[in-house]
Design a protein around this nucleic acid. Structure first.
Length: 419
RNA sequence: GUGGAUGUAGCUCAGUUGGUUAGAGCACCAGGUUGUGGCCCUGGGGGUCGGGGGUUCAAGUCCCCUCAUUCACCCCA
């Protein structure tokens, strides 16, 4: 097991083969769909100057308590990114993408860091795929990002995902609702749990999704009755478009989200197998974000998707990208010839292994049987006649092939992979 | 940050009311077959019993602390 101090840090883990290939396949799947929907790929650093995140989520748990923040040797105050949106918005402003052709549709894929207590589907380092659509205030934009997310989930093998959606209103209507909410809960303060009493002061909207005070919250005023005409029209249209596409969507009047930059639309897609609390992906609209980062105000929508969660929820593994392998075994005295053949076959595009432990033919074939589909056996009478024995390790059959035909023979017998 | 459960070989786990050198299956290596894997047989390597302290003639086993894992809460992907 090894010494404790030399193990992965809490909430992090190694991913070994074959699981690594599942991650790789997932990444390709997500990017493939994003490209179909017209997105460009962006990569931002995994750490940013701390103010980038502080500015965007000052009141949220993930930047208040869960930050991996450090001061480097030069005195810079830096933070490992806890989410993708702030960083991508920062890049949008920094590179003047506001003057590019709108809308600007970007997607990203990479690790995120939050110092949380690990548990099922929750890690201190996890991988997110996300998209951000800048420059459109149309309900079509909201619908499009939701639908893209659902396509990826569905294509990965989780059929018929269900979107839960809500509108938090805008600068005009949300303050009124907020006041009504505070009034309502203040009057019934004694009935609230400890957490909710503090939420009442810090983030009243959060009272809506408390799992303890379900009875009280049922009676709380509904956002729907406070939406202004524009907000009402917006969320209504979003739901109509998504539904018209055949995608399941329903409003959840208790859905609010943790990042406080959201305006109007917020949404989540969960999965029963993961427990109802955790979302596969979630996001919303954040019309004021770029303004907070020193740019002009640009309407935008996006989501973040938890890759570890999605992979662990899949009923069956993703198709593998790994090609069939071959193994070049040898009789005593033919190590060098065998190795040269392995090199030649690799140059021909075939995945090939060869013995590096000076093992017996028996041991070589044993290893080959575990990791390869075909084994070449170099040496002996076949070799002296200009041939080589090729053994099919799944069937147990064996052919003698002329050396000049080996490459072609192998290519037709082995299934190619994407890697 | 709060609460519960669990830590014995690479993996999955036995280990009787505390009692000799801590076991099995799988995996790994070698031999049986000096030109052929998968089955079978034989042998082998591999463990500070998570760590520290305590009780005891004696601790994997009992007690305390600690660390890790895990589940739930908080929050979130």
């Amino acid at each position: 097991m090894g010494s404790e101090e030399f193990q992965t840090a809490r909430g992090t883990r190694d991913v070994l083969s074959p699981e690594t290939w599942q991650f790789e396949a997932m990444r390709r799947l997500a990017l493939r769909w994003a490209v179909r929907y017209g997105y460009e790929l962006i990569e931002t650093p995994i750490f940013e100057k701390s103010p980038v995140f502080l500015r965007v989520g000052a009141s949220t748990d993930i930047v208040q308590h869960e930050r991996y923040q450090f001061v480097d040797a030069g005195g810079d105050d830096l933070t490992l990114r806890p989410e993708g949106t702030a960083a991508v918005a920062r890049a949008y402003v920094q590179h003047g993408l506001a003057s590019a052709v709108q809308p600007v549709k970007l997607c990203y894929y990479g690790p995120m860091f939050r110092r949380e207590r690990p548990q099922a589907g929750r890690f201190r380092q996890h991988t997110q795929f996300g998209v951000e659509l800048f420059g459109s205030r149309s309900p079509l934009a909201d619908a499009e990002v939701m639908l893209l997310g659902c396509r990826i989930v569905d294509a990965a093998g989780l059929r018929n995902p269900e979107i839960r959606v809500n509108s938090l209103g805008c600068d005009r209507c949300r303050p009124q609702y907020r006041r009504a909410l505070v009034d309502f809960f203040t009057a019934r303060r004694e009935e609230l749990c400890q957490d909710c009493q503090t939420r009442l002061e810090q983030n009243p909207l959060r009272l809506l999704d408390c799992k303890v005070d379900v009875a009280v919250r049922q009676e709380a005023p509904d956002l729907e009755n406070y939406w202004c005409d524009d907000c009402r029209a917006h969320i209504t249209t979003v739901i109509e478009i998504v539904a018209a596409s055949g995608q399941i969507i329903r409003r959840d009047r208790h859905l609010v989200r943790g990042l406080d930059y959201y305006t109007r639309t917020v949404f989540e897609v969960g999965h029963p197998g993961l427990g109802d609390q955790v979302a596969l992906f979630g996001g919303g609209r954040y019309d004021g974000l770029t303004a907070n980062l020193g740019g002009e105000s640009v309407p935008s929508v996006g989501f973040g998707m938890g890759i570890e969660r999605l992979l662990s929820a899949l009923p069956t593994a993703l198709p593998t990208l790994v090609p069939d392998r071959a193994y070049v075994a040898h009789l005593p005295g033919f190590e060098r010839q065998a190795y040269l053949w392995a090199l030649k076959l690799r140059d021909e595009g075939i995945a090939v292994d060869a013995d590096m432990l000076e093992r017996s033919l028996k041991a070589q074939l044993k290893e080959a049987g575990r990791r390869a589909r075909l084994a070449l056996i170099v040496g002996g009478t076949e070799w002296s006649q200009g041939n080589v024995a090729v053994r099919d390790l799944t069937q147990g059959s064996q052919d003698v092939v002329a050396l000049e035909e080996v490459v072609e023979y192998m290519k037709t017998r082995l299934q190619e992979g994407e890697l």
